[in-house]
Simulated assay, not measured.
Amino acid sequence: MSGLLVVTAVPAEAEAIRAGLTDATVTVTPVGVGPAIAGAATARLLALAEAAGRPYRAVVSAGVAGGFTGRVEVGDAVLGTASVAADLGAESPDGFIPIDELGMPPTLLGVGSALPADPGLLATLRAALPAAPTGPVLTVSTVTGTTTSTDELRRRHPEAVAEAMEGYGVAVAAAQAGLPFAELRTISNPIGPRDRDAWRLREALTALTAAAPALR
């Protein structure tokens, strides 16, 4: 049996995590940006490992993210209590309708648009990162970039701490394989009006390296 599979979106995130790891049983793999490619690539990695007789024990989606001001700070490591498909649903004159309320379950597993982190895996990560804020991490296909959309997300997800683009897809792949899942993010920018000059990617990647030992 293999150890932990850590999935990132881009190589820079994977390199930052590897820089802080000493555990050879942890596999860190960049798979691409967005929930569709992340879910498909993770499912393939899990299937190949199982076919080779070396199945993984658990899956973590990791990388940088935007954070909700007032809940987290730039440079924080955060742990997702759930990965939420925040823009999966329908628009209506009365506002956004989540997929759960449309009578269309988003996966054949019958799970909804929010997949909780595995309690045991989350507890292990929290013990290693006791200062890390916790809460739902939103998965979006379009990065939030206006005050209006930020306020709408806050209203719909009052406990959310961050948004990224892969967690829900990776979580679905892990659930299909029957494996524990968790999400670890470090904050590079506040969610709100798009301002690339305000992003602190270097600080977030450094924080990812510092958090990597929790993945042992």
Rank of each mutant, 00 (worst) to 15 (best):
R156S: 12
R71T: 14
G53D: 02
D118W: 12
G63C: 09
D87G: 04
A58N: 03
E163P: 09
I99E: 01
D100R: 01
D151I: 01
A207E: 08
L102E: 03
E91N: 14
L153M: 13
P55I: 12
V84Q: 05
E13C: 05
V137F: 00
L102T: 02
P180Y: 08
L21T: 02
A85S: 14
T209S: 15
L102K: 05
A86D: 04
T150A: 14
V6L: 05
T206D: 15
R54M: 05
T142A: 15
E73R: 15
A19R: 12
P136T: 02
G66D: 10
L46P: 03
E163V: 06
E101P: 01
R194M: 10
L138C: 01
A12L: 11
L108D: 13
V172H: 04
R156V: 02
M104H: 12
G70V: 14
D118G: 12
G135M: 09
P116W: 10
A19N: 04
A43S: 15
G34T: 07
V143F: 01
D195F: 09
A90E: 05
V7C: 09
A131P: 04
A114V: 14
L215I: 00
F68H: 04
R185A: 09
T69I: 06
T81A: 06
P130S: 13
D195K: 11
V137R: 02
E183T: 07
S2E: 14
G20A: 06
E152Q: 15
G3H: 11
G178N: 07
A210Y: 00
D87V: 00
T142M: 13
E203P: 00
G89R: 03
D197M: 08
V78M: 03
P130D: 13
E183G: 08
T124E: 15
V60A: 09
G63P: 04
L109N: 08
L102S: 07
V172E: 02
M104D: 10
I17A: 06
A36R: 12
A175I: 05
G34H: 11
P93D: 00
S92T: 11
R126N: 06
P193E: 15
G80S: 02
L121C: 12
F181C: 13
N189C: 06
T29W: 00
V64C: 14
G95L: 01
V26L: 13
E159D: 15
V84R: 04
L102A: 05
E163I: 08
A49F: 11
R185C: 08
P190D: 11
L125S: 11
S141Q: 08
S188M: 09
A211C: 07
A171P: 02
D94C: 01
L115P: 03
E203A: 15
G103N: 06
V28T: 06
A182L: 08
E183P: 05
V28P: 00
V161N: 01
R185Q: 10
A198F: 02
L109C: 10
A214V: 00
I99Q: 06
A171C: 01
